[in-house]
C-alpha cells in the first residue's frame, strides 16, 4: 500500500503540511499568505472574522480552523474570495469608528494593512458611528474601543496566558462589545498591565501603550514598505506589532 503523503493542493500548488496543522498554518509555513485577522500563531483558532475563508473541495470554510488533510483541494487567492474578503473588511470599517489619518496605529495596523492589500478603496457601506468610549484610566495603557473589531485576542490572551480575565465580550448583535472586568468597568481599576500578553496582541489600535503614539516616523512603520503578506511570512515571526 502506498503511503499517504501529508500534502494538499492550494491554488493549484502542492504544499506539504505537518499533521495537526490547520490549512492556515500549513499555508504560512509553506510561504503562502492567506488573509486573516482573528488568528494568531500563539492562540487557539477563533474562527470569527472569516477573512481566512477558503473553498475546500467545493465548500466554504475557515482556513484557521480546518485541519489540513491529504486530498484537499483548497482555493484561496481567487477574485471571488478576495472580493468577499474586501466586503468583510468594509463591514468591519463601517461597524466601528476607524479614522486612520488620526490613528496612532496607522502604518502598524493589520486591519488597515489588509484593506490596502485587498484594495479596499472606499467604505461602501453606511457608517454605523457606534457610540463607544475611550478609557484613559490606566497609567500605562489607553483603550479605544472605537477601533475594536471583536477578534477576542485580548480576551484569549488575558484568560489563557495572563490568567487574569481582564477582557470579555458582552452584548449581542450590533451591541456586541468588549468590556473590562473591574468594579468600575474601567481599565485603571483592573489587574491589567501593559506587559500582559493582552496588552500586546490587539491587531488594531484598540489597546495601546500610552504616550508612544507616532514615535515611529512614517517610513519606518511595519507596513510602510512591506505588505501584510510579506510581514506575516517573515521567518523571524515579528509580524505582530508590539511583540518584538
Amino acid at each position: 500500500m502506498s503511503e499517504i503523503l501529508a500534502q494538499l493542493m492550494l491554488d493549484g500548488h502542492k504544499i506539504a503540511f505537518e499533521p495537526g496543522q490547520t490549512i492556515l498554518q500549513a499555508a504560512l509555513a509553506a510561504g503562502v499568505y492567506i488573509p486573516h485577522l482573528c488568528a494568531h500563531p500563539e492562540f487557539e483558532p477563533h474562527g470569527s472574522c472569516k477573512l481566512c475563508t477558503v473553498v475546500v473541495n467545493g465548500r466554504n470554510g475557515s482556513a484557521c480552523t480546518i485541519k489540513a488533510m491529504p486530498g484537499q483541494d483548497v482555493l484561496s487567492d481567487t477574485p471571488e474570495l478576495n472580493l468577499r474578503r474586501r466586503t468583510l473588511l468594509q463591514m468591519l470599517f463601517a461597524e466601528g469608528n476607524h479614522f486612520c489619518p488620526g490613528c496612532e496605529k496607522s502604518g502598524n495596523c493589520q486591519l488597515q494593512a489588509l484593506a490596502y492589500d485587498l484594495e479596499m478603496f472606499d467604505p461602501h457601506f453606511a457608517q454605523f458611528f457606534p457610540a463607544r468610549e475611550a478609557d484613559g484610566t490606566h497609567p500605562e495603557a489607553f483603550l479605544d474601543f472605537n477601533r475594536c473589531i471583536m477578534c477576542e485576542l485580548c480576551v484569549r490572551a488575558s484568560r489563557d496566558v495572563d490568567g487574569k480575565n481582564v477582557f470579555a465580550l458582552a452584548g449581542r448583535g450590533r451591541d456586541t462589545h468588549i468590556i473590562v472586568n473591574s468594579p468600575s468597568g474601567k481599565l485603571g481599576d483592573s489587574t491589567f498591565s501593559i506587559h500582559d500578553k493582552a496588552g500586546q496582541v490587539c491587531p488594531v489600535g484598540a489597546i495601546l501603550p500610552k504616550e508612544v503614539g507616532f514615535v515611529r516616523p512614517i517610513g519606518e512603520r511595519l507596513y510602510d514598505h512591506d505588505t501584510i503578506a510579506e510581514v506575516a511570512l517573515r521567518e523571524d515571526a515579528t509580524w505582530r506589532e508590539g511583540e518584538k
Binding site: P101, G102, C103, A134, K210, G213, F214
Partner: peptide, 14 residues
C-alpha cells in the same frame, strides 16, 4: 475632547 493628548497634534492637522 476625550482624545489622548499625544494623538492631538496629528488629528488637528485635519
Amino acid at each position: 475632547e476625550g482624545r489622548p493628548f499625544w494623538e492631538v497634534p496629528v488629528v488637528v492637522q485635519r
